[in-house]
């Protein structure tokens, strides 16, 4: 780090990492959502297969997509996110 620059608050390193995780989750979510909807869904409707009464594209993209995202968010919250204090200056704690 260049001279005269304050050392980055240790809490910000955690915050930056978690922001990137948020972006990664969104990218995954978009790929899953788009992938199932516009592959399975682009067939002519008479060729659709149905799961629990829903067209397969809808079931995988919207219903399973939602369940998978809830599960991933759960994993992230449970195992990845770290608790940091918001109030007091935490920079000497390291």
């Amino acid at each position: 780090m260049p001279k005269g620059e304050k050392r980055t608050d240790w809490r910000f390193r955690i915050a930056h990492r978690e922001a990137l995780i948020g972006c990664a989750l969104a990218v995954f979510n978009i790929i899953w959502w788009y992938g199932f909807a516009y592959t399975l869904g682009s067939k002519p409707p008479e060729d659709y297969t149905y799961i629990f009464g829903f067209p397969a594209w809808f079931f995988w993209s919207c219903i399973m997509g939602f369940i998978v995202m809830v599960f991933l968010v759960y994993l992230v919250v449970k195992f990845v996110l770290k608790e940091v204090p918001f109030d007091e200056e935490g920079s000497d704690e390291r």
Binding site: L25, A26, S61, F66, M69
Partner: peptide
């Protein structure tokens, strides 16, 4: 399908603004 793009709001805002914004 279009409406389901909104699932992201649940986690994205809190993770991206998240701790840094709070601090």
């Amino acid at each position: 399908l279009l409406a389901m793009t909104q699932v992201a709001t649940g986690y994205f805002v809190l993770l991206v603004l998240g701790k840094k914004f709070a601090i």
